[in-house]
Simulated assay, not measured.
Amino acid sequence: MTNLLPSTQKDRAIGKDAQTTTDIIEEINVEDVAATNTHEERNDFHGSEADVSLDDMDLSATKLQPEPQPARNQGDSAFLKKKKKISDASDFSTSFNDAAALLAENIRTVGLEISKSIASEVVIQQNSEMTIQESALKLYPTLCEVEGLTEDERYRALSKIPDHPTQMLIFFSLPSAVRLEWVRRFLADH
């Protein structure tokens, strides 16, 4: 029978470098550990963790193939990281929702204040317009009461004073003794 094995393998099988089953299993396990370490480095690079040590492996000589032991914390660590990411996103989402609710409440409050302010301004303006209208209605009879005004001055004043609501209010606030002079100056300036 010819020897089909190369000399190094033949020497191992029968000679000085012959290995027992235990030696072969230990070599396989060392190679597995090296491969696991390479896997760990890759997993660490991708944000995962693997915790594998020789203590976790069964190195008994009675088994030809070692049973891989589940890596400690590998699934737990990935789960915890994923849970933390979800928790962080949930915290951010909650914070964002709280800020949006607070902003909405502030906008609502400001809107109500603006509405009240506008309503108040509208009421003031309406009251002012009513006062001006009432004053305009009283303007002709009051101008007729001013002694010394000619009929021409009275009609010119009647057509110009209502165009200047503030001036009309000033006219009515003056004592009757100065109204003649005020009307003449108003007509001269306008």
Rank of each mutant, 00 (worst) to 15 (best):
T36F: 06
V30G: 03
S77W: 14
A119P: 00
G148K: 05
E134M: 09
G148Q: 01
M168Q: 10
P6D: 12
K84L: 04
V183K: 01
R179C: 12
E153C: 00
D44Q: 03
S95G: 15
V123W: 00
A34E: 13
D56F: 00
S173C: 09
E27C: 06
A71P: 00
D88K: 14
E40S: 02
K85I: 02
M1R: 05
L169R: 01
H190I: 09
R156G: 01
H46Q: 06
K160T: 14
T38S: 08
A61E: 10
T131N: 12
K16Y: 08
A71C: 03
N3P: 01
A34S: 13
N37T: 05
A61F: 09
E41K: 07
G75T: 14
S120W: 03
P6G: 13
T8C: 00
T94R: 09
K138I: 11
P68R: 05
D17G: 07
K84V: 06
L64A: 12
Y155H: 08
S128Q: 07
T21G: 10
D189G: 01
I170Y: 08
F186S: 13
N29K: 05
V178D: 08
F79E: 10
L102Y: 05
M57L: 10
F172P: 06
E134C: 03
R184K: 15
R179E: 00
K116W: 15
E40K: 13
E105A: 15
L143R: 08
S95Q: 15
E26F: 12
F45E: 09
Q19K: 10
S60Q: 08
T131E: 05
R154Q: 12
I25A: 07
S90D: 09
P66A: 05
E151K: 11
D152L: 11
T62W: 11
E181I: 09
E134W: 09
A188V: 10
Y140H: 02
G47Q: 11
E129H: 03
E67A: 08
A104P: 01
D152I: 05
V183F: 01
D51R: 15
D98R: 02
N127C: 02
I161C: 04
T150D: 09
L103W: 14
S93R: 11
D51N: 15
Q126C: 02
T21Y: 04
A136N: 04
Q126T: 11
K160D: 14
L149G: 11
I28Q: 06
A13M: 14
K83F: 06
N37C: 03
D32F: 10
E67M: 04
L112D: 13
K85G: 00
R184M: 06
C144Y: 02
D51S: 13
S53H: 00
S87L: 08
R12P: 00
D23Q: 13
D91E: 14
D91R: 12
D32W: 11
T166L: 13
T21D: 06
K10E: 15
